[in-house]
Nucleic acid binder design. Sequence first.
DNA 1: CTATGTGAATGATTTCACAGCT
DNA 2: AGCTGTGAAATCATTCACATAG
Lengths: 206, 206
Amino acid sequence: MRKIADSTVRRLSLYLRFLEDFEEQGVDTVSSEALATRGGTTSAQVRKDLSFFGSFGKRGLGYSVPELASRVREILGLGQTYRVAVIGAGNIGAALVHFRGFEKHGFHVISLYDSDPKKIGRQSNGLVIRDQRDMEDDIAQDPIDIAILVTPASQAQKLVDRLVKAGVKAFLNFAALQLRVPDDVIVKNVSLALELEALSYALRNR
Amino acid sequence: MRKIADSTVRRLSLYLRFLEDFEEQGVDTVSSEALATRGGTTSAQVRKDLSFFGSFGKRGLGYSVPELASRVREILGLGQTYRVAVIGAGNIGAALVHFRGFEKHGFHVISLYDSDPKKIGRQSNGLVIRDQRDMEDDIAQDPIDIAILVTPASQAQKLVDRLVKAGVKAFLNFAALQLRVPDDVIVKNVSLALELEALSYALRNR
DNA sequence: CTATGTGAATGATTTCACAGCT
DNA sequence: AGCTGTGAAATCATTCACATAG
């Protein structure tokens, strides 16, 4: 399959959110125009995004909501479940474990790690905080698909190196630095500082 | 100075992070190549990004770290402080109030709101949780620059409408939906679901 | 001799506009 | 008639390559 732009994949994920709204409301047909309006884009963009993967609509009619939702889920690889570990049991790490919003799409947080002896062994939303030193052994026993990094920046690279060596291929990084990983490992960054600074720039240059 | 790509602004914010590292380490000169390596981009990209705003380097030498840092801060509008309100005192809202990582760049969380009577009046990291019904009055009294939305998706649009009416021009949205706002209002989205789904796609199409 | 700054070239993404189904 | 699917055109972003300054 040809190289798909990241922006396209992200829009598909957005469309899926709308399709699921429509599913809940019992709407059974939707046009590219309706999806575009919701997503702040154009109908041509929606059709082009979908066209990279096939043709799922009916001319003159639009798209079947359940069918398109199911196709988009398939495209995004949401048919399976993912085993997720949260690394760092600080405020944000704990909040992520509490936040069960992504269980719906098959992302299961199965473990939570920290290095602070005061935290290790305690529970956070029914999950025991484990010792970071045991990560490799635990993963060898019971592999994980995705690691969410919510540690101080100073520790992040060392932890990623260890997790990569242990076979983890995907990271969601909250630490405020750029991680170095091999080519076959994927990192997506979530950076509050960066978003706030982009807002700051936009505010001044309106 | 006209339309700068969002990707450029985000890279500037990233470069600033590196420049601050270098400042702390007492490095006083840096090349576009060094910034590029850290940021996972190319030296030409770094120079092009900077060239939209002026020429800050010395040919044959590179950039003065403190000077470039200061210019980038200025470009991003980080010379001032921003008054930030967090809307929603759930797990993530509370974590954001605890997370003082962005104080450094002048983003001050000055208030925290919720609609749950059980939470209102309680403290979260030294900040009293206020009643969402008082938002407009509070803001009229004491304006805010940026609202961080961490409420359930079902309430988000209504809250944004109220805040926009109260004069708020910038939002950082954690809710899993696309907000509708007037043209002069800026919204940046942080969506865990979307990032995880992008990881899912990337994992399957490696 | 080194590293910036920048037009020109290339590459990627979005928009246009319409033919082709239903 | 209405709305999709898609080449072609337009726009936008990145990379190249080199003249220029220290």
